[in-house]
């Protein structure tokens, strides 16, 4: 099986910040808006290098989304930055009407998504944002897995015309995807080839899926691991091709099982090729304070949980 190496722990939000810095240099139309979280979103470099294209809006996310929609009129490509909770739930109607329904080329970039935000607790740990965003017609939804992929995705979405929700996180996590990757929206990446089970993971759960696959390999179970960085549009072909071979699937995400990646996969399977599925996701609950590791363990979102789910789903074949 393929070997993946953590080249040194880095936060995905820094991938966003560094991607934005690079974009700022190469695309004069890229503008950035931030709601009082410039440091947290790693937007300081862009601000320092392009002060005229950086817009500090204060703690006023609704106005930020509306302004971003307006800036597209005149050819700008706005990247908004705040926590995932304030990027989605707080401004759902502004995104729905002024961005999605209006078809505006706004990139909603959301950090601190999910439980791994940690100690701040449930008020800030949104586990519903993927669902909220994927339900909006025309919205592209991306959840990247590490620093390199987040940087590549940030750069790639500037070249795509249309609204995008880019979700990433707070903690330093394994950085294992190639530095020079060509990020293709909607194109799944097969990380391990396997025959007994398909594991489809997104965001921070991708690394956990790889760890689980290694452990399973030692126990004689061959897991195919797919990195689904784009939840919408979903790479239907890649998933169907894999389950036709393996006959069962585990989906893994740092999100509620209602409305997340798992549900999108379920719909795909039930309408095309039904196979047993297990969900690694939060179970319709809010989070709480704790370290990221403690929370991911308590809510069953790590390699050990994936391993158990794999055994369970194989038994159901």
């Amino acid at each position: 099986m393929k070997k993946y190496t953590d080249t040194g722990k880095k936060d995905t939000r820094s991938g966003f910040g560094d991607g934005l810095t690079e974009l700022g240099k190469k695309n004069q139309n890229v503008v950035a808006l931030c709601a009082d979280l410039t440091g947290s979103l790693k937007m300081d470099d862009f601000k320092a290098n392009h002060p005229e294209r950086f817009f500090q809006v204060g703690i006023a996310e609704a106005n930020m989304i509306g302004m971003a929609a307006g800036m597209t009129i005149g050819g700008k490509i706005p990247f908004t930055g705040t926590f995932a909770n304030f990027s989605t739930g707080r401004v759902y109607d502004q995104i729905r009407q002024s961005v999605a329904y209006s078809g505006k080329n706004v990139k909603i970039c959301a950090s601190h998504a999910g439980l791994t935000l940690g100690e701040d607790g449930a008020t800030h740990q949104i586990l519903e944002d993927i669902g909220l965003m994927k339900m909006l017609p025309g919205m592209t939804v991306i959840n990247t897995c590490d620093y390199n992929q987040t940087k590549a995705a940030t750069i790639a979405i500037a070249d795509y015309e249309g609204p995008v929700y880019l979700r990433f996180g707070r903690p330093k996590v394994a950085n294992f995807t190639p530095e020079d990757q060509n990020f293709q929206i909607g194109k799944a990446i097969q990380l391990q080839e396997g025959t007994d089970v398909t594991v489809v993971a997104t965001g921070h759960l991708v690394w956990e899926a790889l760890q689980a696959a290694e452990a399973l390999h030692d126990k004689g179970i061959s897991a195919e691991v797919i990195n689904i960085h784009t939840i919408k549009p979903l790479d239907n072909d890649a998933i169907l091709k894999s389950v036709k071979k393996t006959g069962c699937i585990v989906t893994a995400e740092e999100h509620n099982f209602l409305g997340g990646l798992g549900e999108s996969v379920s719909r795909l399977l039930t309408t095309n090729h039904p196979v047993p599925q297990e969900f690694i996701a939060t179970q319709d609950t809010f989070g709480e304070s704790g370290t990221p590791e403690e929370l991911m363990d308590k809510y069953g979102l790590n390699a050990a949980a994936i391993e158990n789910a794999v055994k369970k789903v194989i038994a159901r074949k």
């Binding site: 609704a62 930020m64 509306g66 302004m67 800036m71 597209t72 009129i73 050819g75």
Partner: peptide, 17 residues
Amino acid sequence: GQGISVAIGAAQAKKLN
């Protein structure tokens, strides 16, 4: 309640252009 924000964004784009 959304139009003034959009208008401000468009106004800022005018300035940038």
